[in-house]
Amino acid sequence: MNIQDFRYYHDLVKEKSYTKTAKKFGVSQPTITAAINRLEEQFGGQFLIRDQSHKSIIITHLGMQFDEHIQTILKEIEIAKLEIQRNSASKISFGLPPIIGQNYFPKLVPELLHTGILKNLEVIEAGSNDLIDLLIHGEINFSLLGLTDPNLAFGIDAKIIAHYPLRIIVAKNHPWASREGLYFRELADQDFIGLSSNYIHNQLLTQMLKQNQININTIYRSPDVAVVKSLVAKNLGISYLTSLAIDENDQVVALPLLDSNQPDFILAAVSRQNHLMTSKEEQLWNILSKQAVN
């Protein structure tokens, strides 16, 4: 069985043109035809119908189903290549969102340093949503993540470490600063300073906005949590942050929400289930997940 035949087939299904497919791979059209014939013979089905009168290709239902399997196979092959390259380089690609990197990861550094794993980490900093995509596509195998739901995509193992409540942060001279808490609906039409779209906070915020059927006036978004807190401290607006991102040195007041039904920021250690770990990776996973509550 020739993997290249799979590549020819998938591209032909996508382009629906023998000419374009042959040109892309730098081969002749008969080469593509021979590959399709081999696949149909090997698997015992008709995948394509070539309409000579209209010079077009019709993909049969069986052919479309077969292409779904081909895409999975080709994706796994690419993931395998990435894993082999990383293993030969003795590096461990590790995803780390900014908030978790600043406020939780430092607790793990002494043990990572002691075990010699820290020097092997190739840290990729990005928002949790972006890191989930990298995990799904096999570009990283491990990450700490902020989640709204621990049930991730198929093939991803998540170990919940902690739940952190969400807080409304306001300036120390804001009218709400002396309050002990507030209801989310009170945010209606307030000037709001938010985080960039790749932060999990936006999903939590959207959930609460829909639940309370209100709107807020977002005046600015930043990829930097420190910038958000700084702007809030200047009383330019309010924001919505996990308590993990707030400490006593911040010049803001963090107010708890009084709503009975509200989401948490879930801190989790995650890994790809079908990844065969090296001894160093097993050590890393044990360190990441040993505080897990599930």
Rank of each mutant, 00 (worst) to 15 (best):
F142Y: 06
S143R: 00
S143T: 14
S143Y: 00
L144H: 03
L145F: 00
G146N: 05
L147Q: 07
T148S: 14
P150H: 04
P150F: 01
N151L: 14
N151A: 13
L152Y: 03
L152H: 00
A153V: 08
F154G: 08
G155F: 01
G155H: 03
I156N: 00
D157W: 02
A158Y: 00
A158E: 10
K159Q: 12
K159A: 14
I161D: 03
I161C: 04
A162E: 15
A162L: 12
H163N: 15
H163L: 15
Y164F: 15
P165E: 13
L166Y: 15
L166A: 11
R167A: 15
R167Q: 14
R167P: 11
I168W: 05
I168D: 06
I168F: 08
I169Y: 03
I169L: 03
V170M: 03
A171M: 09
A171I: 08
A171S: 14
K172L: 07
K172P: 01
K172A: 04
H174W: 08
H174Q: 07
H174S: 03
R179V: 09
R179G: 04
G181Y: 12
G181S: 10
G181N: 12
L182A: 08
F184S: 02
R185V: 07
E186H: 06
E186N: 04
L187N: 04
A188F: 08
D189W: 10
D189N: 15
D189Y: 13
D189I: 08
Q190M: 13
D191G: 06
F192P: 01
I193N: 02
I193R: 01
G194P: 04
S197N: 12
N198I: 10
Y199I: 07
